[in-house]
């Protein structure tokens, strides 16, 4: 038998090691990023010129690229994801619920490089030949659907990202929706509510904090997604003036350039981009967790989510 004290000390040690690792990780990142931050100051965040050879390094293009791809992804994924979750939780016959739920969870397990490859080889040609011409027709070739139709670019990156965050969004939202107490649902039916009214006026409001949490966690995943985005976004250091244009994100520029970053400032600048990305990701994740917690501890959330 292990005495209580030893048990406690053992666990505390393990926990402390983990905390120290985390601290060391963040500290080393900040130390490495320091030269870039010190040299460029606030201009690092606002500068748009990224020219490692001549020592002009500003990360705004990538920050904007990350925010844009994430926004496109969420605009597409949120309505589809919440709708699917509602259907899985309340509308579909039970025979279909289980296999579909399993399918969604399987999609979450697909490695992102596979999504990237699929995006590049299958989705990109379809976007180039079908989606982009159709969208361009809508605006007569003007922004935001103007320019060269290459397939690869901001729109494709957002599209692939939306498909990648859908499983997370659907799985958590479904759990949150199922966790709405049965007596709430019955209470509404007993007042003469229709199925749609029960969902809209009782179930969704009851689950809204959890749904917001699911959305935020999915946003976190979209912000940090690297390899698939790198494969389909085009990787040019320029603002995308059209949804069709290639650009780059914080994650993609790091993945793309770290092997060739020989200038010390260049490497430091990439780490600095990583620090910014980390800050944004932590902020989003903490927000999500707070939101989900406020809805009650019953939900199974945050498992296997970035």
């Amino acid at each position: 038998m292990v005495p209580d004290g030893a048990y406690r000390v053992g666990l505390a040690t393990v926990a402390a090691v983990f905390a120290l690792l985390l601290l060391a990780f963040v500290t080393s990142l900040v130390v490495q990023a320091r030269p870039a931050f010190a040299h460029f100051g606030f201009g690092f965040l606002t500068g748009t010129k990224w020219d490692p050879v001549h020592g002009h390094l500003g990360a705004l293009t990538f920050v904007v690229g990350t925010l844009e791809t994430t926004m496109i992804a969420m605009v597409i994924a949120v309505p589809i994801g919440l709708g699917t979750a509602l259907a899985l939780a309340y509308a579909l016959p039970r025979r279909l619920q289980a296999p579909l739920s399993m399918g969604v969870e399987l999609l979450a397990a697909v490695p992102s490089v596979v999504y990237g490859l699929w995006g590049l080889l299958v989705v990109a040609p379809a976007v180039r030949t079908v989606l982009e011409p159709a969208l361009a027709k809508l605006t007569g070739g003007h922004e935001p659907f103007g320019g060269i139709q290459e397939g690869i670019g901001l729109l494709l990156a957002g599209l692939i990202l939306s498909i990648m965050v859908l499983p997370t969004l659907v799985a958590i939202s479904r759990d949150v929706l199922i966790a709405v107490p049965h007596e709430q649902v019955e209470g509404a039916y007993a007042l003469g509510a229709t199925r749609w009214q029960v969902l809209r006026r009782v179930v969704v409001p009851h689950a809204r904090a959890g749904l917001l949490g699911a959305t935020t966690l999915a946003t976190g995943r979209a912000l940090g997604e690297t390899i698939a985005v790198t494969m389909v976004i085009g990787n040019t250091v320029s603002f995308a003036h059209s949804l069709f244009a290639p650009t780059a994100t914080m994650a993609s520029v790091i993945a793309n350039e770290f092997t060739e970053a020989t200038e010390p400032f260049h490497l430091s600048a990439l780490v600095a981009v990583a620090v910014i990305l980390l800050g944004v990701a932590i902020l989003v994740n903490v927000t999500a967790r707070l939101l989900v917690r406020s809805v009650g501890g019953r939900q199974r959330v945050g498992l296997g989510v970035a």
Binding site: P181, E183, Q184, E186, G187, A188, Y189, A190, L191, G192, R201, V202, P205, H206, R208
Partner: peptide, 16 residues
């Protein structure tokens, strides 16, 4: 159900 109402074992007002 609007003609035959129901009250349940545990109070279930809509908390939102």
């Amino acid at each position: 159900r609007s003609r035959v109402g129901m009250v349940f074992q545990r109070p279930n007002p809509f908390p939102t």
